[in-house]
């Protein structure tokens, strides 16, 4: 199995405050990883650093995606190389329609691969097909991107975009939060449908419930800027029952 993502000893800080303090993580093609951990432990920070957000400074360590050094790449090229981050809080963008934005995004990806832009008909057909995957209403396409969308609609829209861009590594930051029970099933079904032996998914979540639908191969606990425990899906069940204190205590003892 080749490793799709390889994070080694990653340290990152914001405004001189170190948030990530040596993260190690290897994700192989075909796998699903779950990252859990208390609020403020650095999960979203890890996702942002992967996506190349400038506010964070990487002070140590390395990230390889498909063997390519991510740190060398702009956020857009990380996307072109197959990384997709579904944001915990998708930004509202007034005046830019979802359809128009996606047309640009898809064609930028195609240009990077040396492909011609999609003609409008083919693009529309592709959007319709992918919207079905997350049961999204086509009326959203003409609305401004995320503007006035409900919490759940924003999350669905993220997975719809993921379906359009077909990433090799998808990082889903609390995509389950804000979804009602039916929407959770639909969105999880969409994510599963997009799985292939050549791509991988990292889900950041607080709830075991999501993992009933998107079954992880590995579950990690991120605490205080480090992955302090990894295990199989039973770890998520144990966390659901016992919370995080026992891990914090054990980690404190080890340290």
């Amino acid at each position: 199995m080749s490793s799709l993502l390889e994070i080694k000893n990653l340290h990152a800080s914001i405004e001189d405050r170190e948030i990530l303090k040596g993260v190690d993580l290897v994700v192989h093609a075909g796998e699903v990883h779950a990252i859990m951990g208390p609020n403020g432990s650095g999960k979203s920070t890890l996702a942002s650093v992967l996506a190349g957000k400038e506010d964070y400074t990487v002070t140590e360590g390395s990230i390889l995606l498909n063997g390519k050094d991510l740190m060398e790449l702009s956020p857009e090229d990380r996307s072109h190389e197959g990384l997709f981050l579904a944001f915990q809080y998708p930004v509202e963008i007034p005046g830019v329609s979802t359809a128009n934005f996606l047309k640009t995004a898809v064609n930028e990806h195609r240009a990077y691969r040396g492909d011609e832009p999609l003609d409008p008909g083919a693009f529309l057909a592709l959007m319709k097909e992918k919207m079905k995957l997350v049961e999204m209403d086509p009326s959203f396409l003409q609305r401004s991107l995320n503007e006035g969308f409900s919490g759940g609609e924003k999350k669905r829209n993220e997975i719809f975009q993921m379906a359009m861009l077909e990433p090799t590594l998808a990082v889903l930051d609390e995509t389950d939060s804000g979804l009602d029970i039916d929407a959770l099933r639909i969105v999880a079904g969409g994510v599963n449908a997009l799985r292939t032996p050549n791509n991988a998914t990292v889900v950041i979540t607080h709830y075991q419930r999501l993992l009933d639908y998107i079954v992880p191969d590995v579950v990690h606990v991120l605490w205080n800027g480090r992955i302090v425990r990894s295990g199989d899906k039973s770890l998520a069940l144990e966390l659901e029952k016992r919370g995080y204190d026992w891990i914090k205590n054990e980690t404190a003892v080890e340290a």
């Binding site: 190349g52 702009s74 857009e76 944001f87 930028e108 975009q161």
Partner: peptide, 11 residues
């Protein structure tokens, strides 16, 4: 800006 970049648009 970052949101759009993260979806593949040049800055």
């Amino acid at each position: 800006v970052f949101y759009l970049q993260a979806r593949g648009l040049e800055r």
